[in-house]
Design a protein around this nucleic acid. Sequence first.
DNA 1: CCTTGAGTTGAAGTGCACTTTAACTTGCAA
DNA 2: TTGCAAGTTAAAGTGCACTTCAACTCAAGG
Lengths: 145, 145
Amino acid sequence: MRQESLTIGELAVRSGVAPSALRYYERLGLIRAGRTGGNQRRFDRAELRRVSFIRIAQQLGVSLEDIRSALDALPDSRTPNKADWARLSASWRRRLDEKIDLLTRLRDDLTNCIGCGCLSLRSCSLYNPDDELAGQGPGPRRMLP
Amino acid sequence: MRQESLTIGELAVRSGVAPSALRYYERLGLIRAGRTGGNQRRFDRAELRRVSFIRIAQQLGVSLEDIRSALDALPDSRTPNKADWARLSASWRRRLDEKIDLLTRLRDDLTNCIGCGCLSLRSCSLYNPDDELAGQGPGPRRMLP
DNA sequence: CCTTGAGTTGAAGTGCACTTTAACTTGCAA
DNA sequence: TTGCAAGTTAAAGTGCACTTCAACTCAAGG
């Protein structure tokens, strides 16, 4: 079989992302699709890698807007190759390192800090409002203007 | 000075959380406040620790609803002591361990996986949809019914 | 040819975590 | 006592990441 292009349903199954989400990603310019004569989307297999990248970045608390910016670094005219993806992954690695670092500090301090009764923010390294990745809970945030 | 109770403004400054957010937390039952004769909130100093706990939990991608459940484990009648907080922090430590683990795997696999071209989800350990904490990006999620 | 599942669109809806607004009241210092 | 910052409420608004809906078209098998 090994077809060149995928329907939106196929891409959804293979990526684990709902068709509606894929359409949404396309609208935001995170992925691209060609069209058939009858106006149906056909995705290049390479888009699978993009979707994968998107979901990984989301695990790091990166917004779709920021992911779009990152993906813009990929070549527009040709299919991205290993070197392209490697370059992109480098920046993600840095983010990952930072995030792991933050969580590790959090873990190491937690018992200690609660045990000693100092858990009152500000004083503690647990509270780190300046960290770009720190405030990314499950809900929208943009607390300080 | 060392006053017994804090106004909402004072708690906001000391916790770094906006007054509107604190009122919201109170509505959801995450924190408690007494009232003055004139109906103004007065927070026990112990509430500071609760707010701290909430913000830390949010960094782990836990929803306010889940945080509320966790906080319900604290004693209702008396001010929580060190042992109470330690017990609570234990469960958070487990979550932290899991999350750090996930991110570490992610980091270790990333370059490798992208480099080898296998980054097509499903096949990769990068994609881990069953992990409770994995899907916690910055936006609301609840993709599968 | 006909049916049926899969795809198309724009517009509206959803859930979370808040913030903003409007209209009003309190608490404290001068 | 008066002035004003800080507090109060309910209700509506915001931003993100989607999903759902209605009304329609397309693609492929029998």
